[in-house]
Amino acid sequence: MAVDKISPYGGINITLEAIASVAGEAASECYGVVGLASKNSLRENINELLKKGDYVKGIYCRGDKKKGYEVGVYLYVAYGVKITEVVSEVQKKVRYVLEKTFSIPFPKVDVYVQDIKEIE
């Protein structure tokens, strides 16, 4: 799936990978987020932090021009933080960064906390 835009100079096609890597980048900078998780972790039974190139595995993006696009982020949070706050900050930041980067509205950002990691 890809996002299409038309500018006065021609069409612009943005791939899911591009959106995922920007969203992953933004989410991973958020305080309290210790890593992104694979969205298929249950099925594939991989329970490890994604590496930078693999952010697309932890993010989905769907929707269309009419309804707007929605993004889902799968992640791990640190032990001992207030999860509601971290999640809402992730939503705010991911949405802000995506809208700023691509100039497309993203009305919905879903966050899935896959696990809590204690890092000592």
């Binding site: 309290g32 001992g80 933080v81 207030k82 706050e85 900050e89």
Partner: peptide
């Protein structure tokens, strides 16, 4: 602090004092 943490800076402050 942990229970009342609000916003990014609030969460970070709570971690510092934790």
């Amino acid at each position: 602090l942990l229970m009342g943490a609000r916003g990014n800076s609030g969460v970070i402050t709570s971690q510092i004092f934790r």
